[in-house]
């Protein structure tokens, strides 16, 4: 409820200032796309956040960066003036969709795809257009491609970036839904002939937190490894993956471990990727 209120204010805010928060171009019939920035003005030499928000009709979903057995990740293509650079999409923790034993990963209801933008120190004052083409696949039982061409225009000022309180809150909520990246020293991977053990050093979650779910982030992980058995130790979570084909080497393991607390709290995700040593003995 609170979130909804904040968001409608965010949209109003854009309309009031004449920013084109409302999307142009064609969209999918069951998904609406909008474009936000957490600043009202860009300061040369600084980073700021932008977000593409997709709102999906009930029963429809869009996809995570690894879509699973079917589907297509939402794709962002930027057109930016010189002096502005877009980073990679930061994907919030996904959820799982299953149909006839085929699994896919994505989002329902609403998702904020966050992208950091960086303004060069030499960016001249004036106004900058930010344009992004968004392509997605929206699916229920059936799938329909969707597209939106979104645009924002912001002033460039050599002064502290002007921020909007309600939008800041929306961005803070969206940032809170991103998985934390686990640094390599917190991830230990051991490969046996038939399985792969992954040990993630993680502080103990709050009492009552249900068991976590593992989401493979690459096709190689999903196709070479079965769903893991997950075991908790005091300061770590152990994932044991059976290899689908014991004779085949597994080049790397990549994924997100997601704890979904009961109630309203957002999911807590931990993302990791680790290459495997290829020296492990392998059965032919």
């Amino acid at each position: 409820m609170f979130l909804k209120k904040t968001l409608s204010r965010a949209v109003l805010f854009f309309s009031a200032l004449g920013f084109s928060a409302a999307p142009a171009g064609t969209e999918g019939p069951h998904v609406r796309a909008e474009f936000f920035s957490d600043v009202r003005s860009v300061r040369p030499g600084e980073k700021f956040w932008t977000a593409v928000r997709l709102r999906m009709d009930r029963g429809w979903h869009t996809y995570w960066k690894y879509p699973g057995d079917s589907g297509m990740p939402t794709r962002l293509r930027w057109t930016l003036p010189p002096g502005l650079t877009a980073g990679d999409v930061r994907w919030p923790c996904p959820i799982k969709f299953t149909a006839s034993s085929l699994v896919s990963y994505g989002y329902k209801d609403e998702v904020w795809l966050l992208v950091p933008l960086e303004a060069a120190a030499a960016l001249p004052e004036g106004r900058v257009p930010l344009e992004v083409r968004v392509d997605w696949l929206e699916c229920a039982d059936i799938c329909v491609p969707g597209r939106a061409d979104l645009r924002l225009e912001l002033p460039v000022q050599n002064a502290p970036s002007d921020k909007d309180a309600s939008l800041m809150k929306s961005f803070a909520l969206a940032l809170g839904r991103l998985p934390a990246e686990l640094s390599p020293e917190k991830v230990t991977v051991t490969e046996g002939p038939r399985d792969v053990h992954v040990r993630l050093s993680l502080p103990e979650p709050p009492p009552g937190t249900p068991a976590p779910v593992f989401y493979p982030a690459t096709a190689a992980t999903a196709e070479k490894l079965s769903e893991p058995r997950i075991r908790r130790e005091r300061d770590a979570v152990i994932l044991r993956f059976a290899k689908k084909t014991p004779s085949e080497p597994v080049p790397a393991v990549a994924g997100v471990l997601v704890f979904v607390p009961e109630g309203e709290a957002p999911p807590r995700g931990f993302e990791f990727q680790k290459k495997l040593e290829q020296a492990a003995p392998r059965r032919r």
Partner: peptide, 11 residues
């Protein structure tokens, strides 16, 4: 976790 383990598919 035990439930999760049971749900894990075979080869």
């Amino acid at each position: 976790l035990a439930l999760l383990g049971l749900a894990a598919p075979t080869h």
